[in-house]
Nucleic acid binder design. Structure first.
Length: 370
RNA sequence: GGAGGGGUUCCCGAGCGGCCAAAGGGAGCAGACUGUAAAUCUGCCGGCGGAGCCUACGGAGGUUCGAAUCCUCCCCCCUCCA
């Protein structure tokens, strides 16, 4: 079953879209949020819990899984889906983000990236072809091109050079692709320079990818810049292909991104924040370790129907967190992922009912969820 | 009864004449986190509005320009011997 994207509906007041992706491992309703499961696990959750939270698709990471346990191992064991017992769709990031985040441990050449493993210091050469080979071995439903996530700040010249490399790699990734069952997305870079972003779109469209991502955002640039990129560049992407804003973001960012015509998001915020005790609600910011919750018998969010909110008090969750109990991470992550999934459900429902603009305005007025 | 060791800021614990409001932990309080090197990281943590002053290193005296640090006595605690 080849990858497919169906545009169901376009919003009238904004550039938002309602759609559906069909992958080899199932359907994904868009706009969609994809919990991040870098090392073949959405940290602290079982696949069943991820599913119960409402997630349809999750992320895995090429670089991390290549280093450990090794893509060949995963392939031998039946692929990433079977390995981690997640039967649904998986998108794998290419390792492009690690080019950025592991800056001190890598060297970029025209042909690829020489990484020094953050685990044991060993050297590895990740090329566009290799990135595809690994992702095909993992068997993900959506593969990403190897790119250079341009850091912020970067001069025009640096960004231009970085973009050229990403574009060259995009071609090589496209050529390296062999499995028709797996989709491959191209990534639009160009840093904070809209001209370069436009140029990137022009150059990448002829490569005819299954979807297009905006990368290199949420790397420390001012929020207005990210918003300007999403607003200006997204409409330039083909209407009949999914658009993915990589690494974004806060609930507010997501609502904004949807209004710009973005269909897919991924971010570590809900999971990492949960582990660090920051919980999302519709009305206030909950830093569960704060003393004010010591004797608070209420759930995190009265309006939330997640497992955590249905069964536990803030006081108990605070206790678990302060005590360093593993369950704190589990319960907090369940809540946050559920919150994100519910947010996306609400967005899709609003689009369905032609009231997305109203939803967006109300949501932003409330402070964007946190 | 004899011989040693020790009492330090909420707790543990370093300091053993000035650079000490006193290392380092812990606890406590707060903050950060955006394609995950993150169950991580950062800040605050005696009092008073700051430069500064006051109160603090078991208690009371003393030596000294200056004492948590040296001396005397006292009060507790621990170990060993009888």
């Amino acid at each position: 079953m080849p990858f497919q994207f169906n545009l169901i509906k376009k919003d009238t007041g904004t550039s938002a879209r309602l759609g559906q992706m069909t992958t080899a491992h199932g359907i994904v309703d868009t706009p969609a949020f994809m919990p991040v499961g870098t090392q073949a696990t959405v940290k602290s959750l079982t696949p069943e819990q991820i599913r119960t939270c409402g997630a349809q698709i999750i992320l895995g990471n090429t670089y991390h899984l290549y280093l450990r346990p090794g893509h060949e191992t995963i392939k031998k064991l039946g692929g990433l889906h079977k390995f981690m017992n997640w039967p649904g769709p998986i998108l794998t990031d290419s390792g492009g983000f690690q080019v950025y985040s592991l800056g001190k441990l890598r060297k970029i050449t025209d042909d690829g990236v020489i990484f020094q493993s953050h685990i044991d210091g060993s050297k590895h050469f990740l090329t566009p072809k290799k990135a595809l080979e690994i992702q095909e071995a993992l068997g993900s439903d959506i593969m990403m091109c190897l790119d250079e996530c341009t850091p912020y700040p970067a001069t025009f010249a640096q960004t231009q050079k970085s973009l050229a490399l990403t574009m060259e790699w995009a071609k090589l990734c496209k050529e390296a692709k062999t499995n028709p069952e797996q989709a491959l997305f191209g990534i639009v870079q160009g840093g904070t320079y809209l001209d370069l972003r436009r140029q990137a779109v022009e150059e990448i469209l002829p490569l005819n990818f299954d979807g297009y991502a905006l990368g290199g955002v949420s790397v420390g640039e001012p929020k207005e810049i990210m918003y300007a990129i999403a607003e200006t560049i997204t409409p330039l992407l083909p209407e009949d292909k999914p658009r993915y804003l990589m690494g974004v973001g806060t609930p507010e960012d997501i609502v904004y991104g949807v209004s710009c015509g973005i269909d897919m998001f991924d971010c570590v915020i809900p999971t990492r924040s949960a582990r660090h005790g920051l919980l999302f609600t519709n009305s206030e910011k909950i830093v569960i370790k704060n003393a004010r919750f010591r004797e608070d018998d209420a759930p995190i969010d009265e309006t939330c129907d997640c497992y955590t909110c249905r069964n536990f008090s803030r006081a108990y969750l605070r206790h678990l967190y302060i005590a360093g109990e593993i369950l704190a991470m589990v319960l907090n992550t369940i809540h946050n992922v559920h919150y994100y999934m519910r947010l996306l459900e609400q967005i899709r429902a609003a689009l369905e009912e032609n009231c997305f603009t109203q939803f967006k305005n109300t949501f932003m007025k409330k402070g964007g969820g946190v």
